[in-house]
């Protein structure tokens, strides 16, 4: 009756007719199914995110049990900050390295110990280590952390610790938490170390090194300058030895 009356008065109009042409409301079963899907999708998505997050963090060093603690350095090779070897050594070797770069890790662990024994400990050469940030945040934090350890005279022990605990790039191995764990494992004064790392005391120095590397045309790590000779990438011990001997001969 009412509809009839509205039609007669012209109240229905096109909008009202559209309203009436709407498909009938969805069946109860379809609606329930929709709700079920909505809740299941939401729960599954969150569970998936948490699991994925945990798995991708898994690359990191989670606790001290999986920490590789390198042999502590003895007094054989003198060091001052990031310089290894005697300050009066006739030849200077400058190494540009990223703590996250795997080849830098190999250089540090496979080649450098022998070079150190033959040339740095004997006072023939000194090594100036320049960290750069080429690979991301964790390279930055690791570099800052090395200098924070350097404040306590442990730059080189921390350097060894970092390279011994490389676990992929930017996967949490050098998260600030882990960097603090490394410091604790090296028996550093953790209060001082943590304060240094948290306040970013050496943030500027990383940027300085990066700029310096750029102006010297370095675009990959490791890059080592033996005197005037540059060695790009990971090379054999012999390659370094030849370069060092040549430079030493030139200096004589």
């Amino acid at each position: 009756m009412a509809r009839e009356a509205r039609r007669q008065r012209g109240l229905g109009g096109p909008r009202r007719r559209r309203e009436q042409r709407r498909p009938p409301r969805l069946s109860r079963r379809l609606r329930s199914l929709g709700w079920l899907v909505a809740v299941v999708v939401a729960v599954a998505a969150v569970a998936g995110l948490i699991v994925l997050g945990t798995l991708t963090r898994g690359g990191g060093v989670d606790d001290n049990t999986s920490l590789v603690v390198p042999t502590p350095r003895g007094p054989e090779t003198p060091s001052q900050g990031s310089i290894l070897g005697s300050a009066n050594a006739p030849l200077t070797i400058v190494e540009y390295s990223d703590f996250q770069c795997p080849f830098c890790g190999e250089l540090a662990q496979e080649i450098m110990p022998q070079l150190e024994k033959d040339y740095l400990a004997t006072g023939k050469a000194k090594l100036v280590f320049k960290y750069v940030r080429f690979l991301g945040d964790e390279s930055q934090w690791a570099a800052e952390a090395a200098d924070c350890a350097g404040e306590q005279g442990k730059f080189w022990d921390y350097h060894d610790m970092l390279f011994a605990n490389q676990r992929g790039e930017n996967k949490g191995a050098f998260s600030k938490d882990n960097l603090k764990r490394f410091a604790a494992a090296l028996n550093l004064d953790t209060t001082a170390f943590n304060a240094c790392l948290d306040e970013g005391r050496y943030t500027g120095k990383v940027a300085e090194n990066n700029n310096e590397a750029r102006t010297r045309g370095i675009n990959s790590t490791p890059t080592v300058f033996v005197g005037q000779t540059s060695i790009v990438g990971l090379k054999s011990y012999e390659a370094f030895k030849t370069a060092i001997e040549e430079e030493l001969a030139r200096a004589r």
Partner: peptide, 27 residues
């Protein structure tokens, strides 16, 4: 919303999305 789809499903979509958000935010 001529077909009525939005009236029917938008509340479901919002509930599902915000449930996801709340659960993850809680974590």
């Amino acid at each position: 919303d001529r077909s009525g789809m939005a009236a029917e499903w938008a509340p479901v979509a919002v509930f599902s999305m915000t449930l996801m958000g709340v659960a993850y935010a809680a974590y």
